[in-house]
């Protein structure tokens, strides 16, 4: 059942490193954003009692990425959080490649479907 080029075990190990690297990059970005955020907003009182919803520039993939150049604390944290969400998505995308190498057509289809659900969700489909 193992592929000729990559075995399931090897794929798992690559996926493991991919996930850990993604989380570390995301956490470092969130941390950097956190420092900028706290130096600007540290002594203002927060209020999370009532749900207002985030402003438009913090709630879509395109806007968050576009805001990065402003080097605003909140936008930088949001970029880190986006990288965090992207990590398992990258894992699924990589799995398509891995199943392609194994020539497993059934699982290429299964994985493409899962990726489509994730992209649909991130694109604001619901």
């Amino acid at each position: 059942m193992s592929g000729k080029i990559w075995s399931d075990k090897e794929i798992s190990v690559i996926i493991g490193y991919l996930l850990r690297t993604g989380v570390l990059i995301a956490a470092a970005t969130v941390f950097a954003g956190g420092i900028v955020y706290l130096t600007h907003f540290g002594d203002i009182a927060p209020n999370y009692k009532f749900f207002r919803g985030e402003p438009a520039d913090l709630r879509s993939v395109g806007e968050v990425v576009r805001d990065t150049i402003t080097f605003n604390g909140k936008s930088l944290i949001q970029l880190g959080l986006l990288l965090l969400i992207a990590t398992p998505v990258a894992r699924v995308a990589f799995s398509i490649l891995a199943f392609a190498v194994q020539r497993d057509r059934l699982y290429i289809l299964v994985t493409v479907f899962v990726l489509a659900v994730l992209v649909f969700s991130l694109a604001g489909g619901i």
Binding site: L19, V30, F31, G33, G34, Y37, F41, P46, Y48, R52, G53, E54, P55, L58, R59, S60, V61, G73, K74, S75, I77, Q78, G80, L81, L82, I85, T87, P88, V89, R91, V92, V114, V117, L118, F120, S121, L122, A123, G124, I126
Partner: peptide, 23 residues
């Protein structure tokens, strides 16, 4: 992780993900 990412996308687009709190 993949399951949570699927719902996190919806939460992000609906404005449920606050950077100051999530950090």
């Amino acid at each position: 992780g993949v399951t949570a990412a699927a719902s996190a996308g919806v939460y992000l687009n609906r404005g449920f993900i606050d950077p100051g709190l999530s950090m």
